[in-house]
Design a protein around this nucleic acid. Structure first.
Lengths: 337, 337
DNA sequence: GTGAAAGCGCTAACAG
DNA sequence: CTGTTAGCGCTTTCAC
């Protein structure tokens, strides 16, 4: 039989309210009383019943992480694992627990209602939402549930978000290829329904424009972040003889490198390749992949931190954070011998 | 302001209890009444407050998934993502939510108490616990919280578990290599503190014994399931000139293949390689990796199903399930031209 | 500073 | 079959 506040109160010779105050760090407790109560709590390893606390206080000390499974083959890419780890780690250190919902399309609507109305969580992190995401829509509709997005969303200007500076990163990739003297710079984009896919494409366009290069639409193919798609997209692009390609994710880049290889071309001599993400596999690719590193783990941790800040210190102004990327030069771009 | 049972009761002209019965599928409700209430619930998209339900009923409709982060570099291996996906999927279809705790060593004790005493979850799945796991200890101590393990645990004979038949799988790998005429069959094992690592090693020994082969201790090196470790372990083994190796995980096998390659040897001509897991990367290895496929996703789903069955239909007898493996023959073992 | 008392929204006997 | 009633364990006024 688990102990209750009442038990602790009896054991320490105070009232239930006082124990509650101690647990919640209420300053209105005499230091000696606090110590005595804490002592008892520690020795019997008391854990308050979260359901009761949730009901009485309206806060559960749980945050939700929602990953809509609509678009990607989520779990062949190490992006989500790293993100989850970041969120979890921040939760651990801030005393929260994490509810994880992988929202399969069939259940998306039901999950959305559950998240918003069932008081299971104090707030939610939405990872890589697509435009018109029903979960984001539900969250927006009902103002009371705090939420933050990983990756900003077009048309949701008031929302909180943590994002990576995808545009600058992509532009830097292109500029790097230009600097190396490449003439026909292609790109395999991410899905244009996802903000990261969109932004990286915009960054590509910016980089090209800044270098006064014309964009050849034959050299632009949309992918879906998967390796297989990278392979296929690259095959299409190769018909038009690029000498360089910026690919919006490392998984796709690995697929694309196979396509280049299978076409009998050399990397980087015939085609230089730059990816995006810097997943662990990038360094082991043959040749090692030059890529734009984004701090995935930190995105998750930061989102959790900001969300918890919103929950605990609600203020009207939005919380926003743009994390920077960094180019990691390896052999696939031809900059290194 | 979210709706409550009372609101729904008023709107449908019945009492709160009746609405509660409808929500909980109590048979003692007249069909017409049920329909009317369901209708209202649907139109206003009512979601019961889970905190209140948790408090009153002692059940939250949430299960926990705990992954102790002690041993492995969890998220470079696609094992856990797939497992999580399986659990999540079963939860979705059974109307549960999933709490995910990645138990970093620093927080392990606190998380254990929280899991067991705070009434956040109705039960928990413990994935890849190590021997003497403090979380498993806490769970065992307090009988009331239902739990199931992924991978059985030595010395916890009464526990519920879902496991993969690692022993038979490993033995099959060895037998396959024997059948192909290999003489010096080495192995890189998983960590012997993990049941999967242990069982696969035992399977290796069984396979060797059944073929009347002596085990040369120089040809056995313990690894930790990571790619890097696979590389290093293989380097050690290569000093003793094996002509085949069974490697207890595909990630390690990929590392080992690099080591073999870097040593100037050919796969499978000089050294045949068989892995374990059949992760997506196995098929893309060069040459494609022969491996023992285990149903990771299904392990997770099955664990969730069994756990929820325990929660909803508690009976004394333990739930146990052993999933079978299957050998997937590709080029790295030399069976295919 | 501390205690008493009133709920938070739901379930689960218990009547009828 | 349905309504009434008493809590579940906690937070939070409100007194003192």
């Amino acid at each position: 039989m688990p102990l209750t506040l009442e038990d602790i109160a009896r054991m320490s010779g105070v009232s239930r309210s006082t124990v509650s105050r101690v647990i919640n760090d209420d300053p209105n407790v005499k230091e000696r009383t606090r110590q005595k109560v804490l002592e008892i709590i520690r020795t019997v390893d008391f854990q308050p019943n979260m359901a009761a606390r949730g009901l009485a206080a309206g806060r559960t000390q749980v945050i939700g992480l929602v990953i809509p499974m609509a678009v990607t083959s989520i779990f062949t890419d190490p992006y989500f694992p790293l993100l989850i780890q970041g969120v979890s780690s921040a939760c651990n250190s801030l005393g929260y627990s994490m509810m994880l919902w992988l929202a399969e399309p069939d259940y998306e609507q039901r999950i959305a209602s559950k998240i918003v109305y069932s008081a299971l969580v104090d707030g939610v992190i939405v990872a890589s939402a697509v435009m018109d995401d029903p979960i984001v829509a539900a969250l927006n509709e009902r103002q009371k549930m705090p939420f933050i997005m990983i990756g900003r969303l077009l048309g949701a200007p008031t929302a909180n978000y943590v994002d990576v500076d995808n545009r600058s990163g992509a532009a830097a990739a292109v500029e790097h290829l230009v600097r190396l003297g490449r003439q026909h710079i292609a790109t395999v984009t991410g899905p244009q329904t996802m903000i990261a896919g969109y932004d990286r494409y915009v960054g590509y366009l910016e980089g090209m424009e800044r270098a006064h290069r014309l964009v050849d639409s034959d050299l632009v193919v949309e992918g879906d972040f998967s390796e297989r798609c990278g392979y296929q997209a690259m095959q299409k692009i190769l018909l038009y003889h690029p000498d360089a390609v910026f690919i919006a994710s490392d998984m796709m880049a690995i697929g694309a490198m196979h396509a280049i290889h299978d076409a009998g071309l050399r990397i980087p001599e015939d085609v230089a390749v730059v990816g995006f993400d810097d997943i662990p596999a990038a360094v082991r690719a043959i040749p090692p992949l030059t890529t734009i590193r984004q701090p995935i783990n930190r995105s998750g941790a930061m989102a959790a931190q900001l969300l918890i800040d919103i929950i605990e210190h609600p203020t009207p102004e939005p919380r926003r954070m743009l994390l920077t990327t960094e180019i990691v030069i390896r052999k696939s771009c031809g900059a290194q011998p």
